[in-house]
Simulated assay, not measured.
Amino acid sequence: MQEIDAPFLNVSDPHFSIRSQEVRRARDQSWYARTPYGYAVLRYGEMSRLITNRKLRQGSYAWPALNGAGGSFADWWSRMLLSQEGQDHTRLRKLAAPAFSQDLIVSLQPKFQALANELIDAFIADGRCEFMSAFAEPYAARVVLTLLDLPHDQWREFTDIAVEMGLALGVTYRQDLERINAATDRMFGYARQVIAERRKRPLTDDFLSSLIRALDEGEGKVSELELYDLVVLAIFGGIDTTRNQLGLAMETFILNPDQWRLLAQDPGLAPGAVEEVMRVRPTVTWVTREAVEEFEFEGLVIPKGCTVHLFSQSAGTDPREFPEGVFDITAQRRRHFGFGGGVHHCLGHFIARADMSEALALLSRRLANPRFDGTPEFLPDSGNTGPITLPIAFDPA
């Protein structure tokens, strides 16, 4: 297929939906589409090969510039771990890795269970709740604060800031610029406060201690600004994505009640439920790469500097790889791309998988027959998406 014949998707349109019939038609027609930002990869096979292709670098660093956006969020975004390549990326990733080790996450699972039960206890007798504010938001925020060994009394402030910052990852970035930058300034204020308070206590082996020690001992491994950048990333990334993904999971199960009942009967299916939700309804609907040199792929010449969007939601539901329209938490699937891939594979995937597994297992056992109790409100259905509000009713189990 010639490039000019490929379908065009206007992903800059605030009403664009990555789950639309338009995208499905484009995927049927071609493995890629043209967009205002470069190319979009629509199919599973091509995405699985390109996401680890060394001729592509992480491309999200350019997102603020593509939107004509500046300010404190854009400055932080250009510096932080996800936007780095090569030695700087490796150095920062090694510094952050101990906070997200599998052994540490396993040790925290009883705390995740206790937190989930505490939140459910607060609303279960009512038989209804606004799921995002009653569960998804406080759970996501307090999991991150648990990981950072911080008190939970400020979870609301952290959540509100993370949600405002998260607007930058959607197609309305430009129109929300003032709110996004104000939230970023507030988050950095909290990061400085958190570090100052942590320094008052003896340093241990936790995430914050390891970063502070690297700075204070003058090993040259991290600068003070990089220290703040990593703390902001841990708080923002952990809260915003987990909050959204839990909301999308609840929506998906409401639309698939037989799978909710199956999970309630066998909580051991919870890890598979997380993977299946993230395959069909990921909060991160695409990941971005940029060509570091010109190369040809499947007949398409991709110039140096070209942006390539890898549509994880479209690839995860590609009928060439997965049964069309099937949501099955018992199925063994090939990997999804909800956590990205390659050297930029999500560093926090262990904690995300663990905390969401515990949450879904307990929710399914305690909330029977969940259903919509009003009209949910959602972020735009592209970029990073999720419910803004999700009113539900249920039968206490």
Rank of each mutant, 00 (worst) to 15 (best):
E224S: 13
E224I: 03
L225I: 08
E226M: 05
L227H: 06
L227S: 13
D229S: 09
D229M: 08
D229Q: 06
L230V: 02
L230T: 00
V231H: 05
V232R: 12
V232S: 13
L233P: 03
F236R: 11
G238R: 09
I239P: 14
I239V: 15
D240F: 13
D240C: 00
T241S: 14
T242I: 14
T242C: 07
R243H: 12
N244L: 08
L246K: 03
G247I: 10
M250N: 01
M250T: 12
E251W: 03
E251S: 10
T252P: 02
F253Q: 09
F253L: 07
I254H: 04
L255G: 09
N256P: 05
Q259V: 09
Q259L: 04
W260T: 00
L262S: 08
L262M: 10
L263A: 03
A264N: 01
Q265E: 15
P267N: 12
P267Y: 10
G268T: 09
L269D: 12
P271H: 04
P271S: 08
G272S: 08
A273R: 07
V274Y: 02
E275Y: 07
E275M: 06
V277M: 05
V277D: 01
M278C: 08
R279K: 14
P282Y: 09
T283F: 04
V284M: 07
V284H: 02
T285I: 02
T285R: 15
T288C: 13
E290Y: 07
E290F: 09
E290D: 01
V292R: 13
V292A: 12
V292C: 15
E293M: 04
E294R: 15
E294D: 09
E296Q: 14
F297M: 11
F297R: 05
E298D: 15
E298Y: 02
G299C: 07
G299Q: 08
V301F: 08
K304V: 13
V308P: 01
L310H: 02
L310Q: 03
L310Y: 04
F311E: 03
Q313C: 03
A315W: 02
T317S: 13
T317M: 13
P319Y: 10
P319R: 14
R320H: 11
R320M: 04
R320Y: 02
E321Q: 15
E321Y: 01
G325V: 02
V326K: 06
V326D: 04
